[in-house]
Design a protein around this nucleic acid. Structure first.
Lengths: 232, 232, 232, 232
DNA sequence: TATGAATGAGACTTCATTCAT
DNA sequence: TATGAATGAAGTCTCATTCAT
């Protein structure tokens, strides 16, 4: 089966790119890791860069599929971000090497042929932006520049992942990732949430204002089993 | 003068690294750009990587010097971040190519010899963290994890710069950078500021609480002439 | 076939190292001589030094195999040295370029990786020493320091080869080599041989002592067909 | 004084050539060792090779002067060789680094400009040959090929020095050198000496022949104060 | 005479990619 | 489809030598 080999090569490339960086990684090492010969790589990919592009593409598609799934559901922006965050972080935990590559190699100047890499960030940002725009329309959040907001959230998120992955070291700081997953939605809520709706999680007694009757604290992150199918 | 050549080479390397990326950049091109011969580069630097390291070092020192200057002054955390943001963004405007390198090459797996590159983010984060810790002690801000907070701010900031620089293209989106400089402090204030002290800049009339007499709205970012001298 | 190319490269390297000396020789020239591309050299050898090491190794193995073959046979020390000398000189005649390299590059300070080069002389000396020790035990020769004796013989032998090869010039002085092959054993006999057993080849009439009946003048160097198979 | 600097550079070059080998040695290192700048080296020598040539020249002259001194004296060949051996070995002990260079770099293919290096061995051999020829004429020794004899002696001598110096290691095996100095003349005597004149040092009681009246055992090596002035 | 920064040709080695089997 | 030996362009770095000061 063709996709079999392609997949094996992709997996092996992830290991090698992670361990050595894209430029230092050699096709020989990838082939050895995959248990095939160099020639075989070129039967499934046009070039080494193409392998990297494919790695990005697969991940991009996962995220986009997930984001499109979120879009169709009638969720608050908090739940949407919470959902994406959970999914994104889960992927990082599942394959830290992959996550590392996604961050390290993203900004590098690659040939035109690997447009996917440039798309990765752009496509996710578009979705984030759409989420902010919709929330603005629905007056879920305070007025803000949705482009900028999307970018800030994305940047913060990636910095957290980058840090959790450490500097090329072996381990993944899972505790840090979990702390972040808990705190980020709260901060987002404070930063963007409408003042008269947003409860202050730190002051549940509501010292300076009374909770309105019928008002419910909105858990920013909750299990959403119907979304899990979106993950491969 | 020795530092003369070293500086010329540094400047030329910035241009070439920016245009071609560190790995694609050749020592021949750098030498040509600097108007010296290849050998001369190696009279001032141990290796190509050493040149990159020096580029990071110079910028790191600028930032650290500025941050240490801020530390000594009795400023609110808002003013501190505002100040650093202004300074950092000003540097980006002054030399977008340099800013681009700082972001693109930061995460690459370089040899141990270029520890400066690994230090760059770490040192700035330490300062950010220190600022958050101090603000917490002074009860300027809500309780939060200072490590995480520092990281989020840093990540958001870098994402903005990355976006403003565009994807390797020539231009710098100055408008975007300025918008960001205006909005980020506000968001930080909302996300971290203490509720009973932080005025809501969107609602200057103070619908939900009365401004205290003598209380002045603190513009998060204002000209601080005494700091300007810190920028070389 | 792998060993095919390796052998071609070895042969070509011998030519080039001989003509230009190891340091002046370039991998490009070796590749050209071998009719392959530079890269191919590095498919069969780790480095230029490795090629030199391999050249020494092949020759060392030839000599050692021959010396071990001699060891197993019940020969007088004279026959042993005579045999080795004949074999060694034959190799020199067959490939003077190779012989030249073996002498010229032997003393150079090479990297640790080319330990074979250091082994070359050491291993042959060990065998020589062993031959002297055995002869001493069998009282074939006068008392002497076997280490020193081995060294003197080796040095004398190499000086002869060095001279016969000329100073880097093209030719090999075959006559000189043959003269030496004839005279050296005689001198060895005189220098080390037991006085009451050693016939004086210059005075076959035995002026100062009578040849014992049944005693045969031992030609130090005679055809030993059974040894020829030891030469590849 | 011009020769002052030239001498300092020569001494420094000896140290560096010894430690790193001629090719690996850099002019920078030599200059640093000499406490001058690279440029200065080129004020006293035409090239790096020229420095090496000068090193050989100085030593060659020492040896030749000594050999010429010997020639003028009415000494037996044994005394002559004994004298040269003593002097040569004394030089080795005095400056092992220098001796090492003389052996290591002698066979290398150097540019034509450094003919001295090629002369070194040739000139000494000529003298040896002359000594043998004269001894033959005076019937001091058995008939032999003086060219070959000279070569064998030279080769044996150099092998001993090479071994005593070790393989580039720090130390000099002085004991070995002294043993050799004692044994070599004896072996030479046996190999070349006339049978009816040569006493057998192993059998001082003269088992197989009577010492002639008035015949004195000739010590092969004795103090010759009149020669010491020849050593700088 | 001394300096030492500048030079630049040229060396070794790597490695993505090809293609005959 | 799989192989892997062969390719060769290209890159980094070295270092003997020069020459203006």
């Amino acid at each position: 089966m063709k996709s079999d080999k392609r997949e094996i090569i992709r997996q092996s490339a992830i290991k090698i790119f992670y361990a050595e960086g894209f430029h230092q990684a050699t096709t020989d090492r990838i082939a050895a890791e995959a248990g095939v010969s160099v020639g075989t790589i070129y039967n499934y990919f046009r070039s080494k860069e193409d392998v990297l592009g494919y790695i990005f593409q697969v991940e991009l598609e996962k995220r986009v599929r997930y984001l499109e799934g979120l879009q169709k559901q009638d969720l608050s922006i908090a739940d949407k971000f919470g959902g994406f965050l959970a999914m994104h972080f889960a992927q990082v935990k599942e394959d830290p090497a992959l996550a590392s590559i996604l961050i390290r190699e993203r900004n590098l100047p690659h040939k035109r042929s690997v447009a996917v890499i440039e798309d990765f960030q752009a496509r996710i940002l578009e979705h984030f932006e759409g989420m902010f725009e919709e929330a603005l329309k629905k007056q879920e959040i305070r007025p803000c520049n949705p482009k900028l907001a999307a970018l800030l959230v994305f940047g913060a998120m990636e910095a957290v992942i980058s840090r959790a992955l450490g500097k090329g070291a072996g381990g993944l700081d899972r505790g840090f990732l979990e702390d972040a997953a808990r705190e980020i939605p709260m901060l987002l809520f404070r930063a963007f949430g409408l003042p008269d709706l947003g409860p202050d999680p730190d002051q549940p007694d509501g010292r300076d204002r009374q909770a309105q009757p019928g008002e419910e604290a909105q858990p920013v992150h909750q299990a959403r089993p119907e979304m899990d199918i979106l993950l491969d």
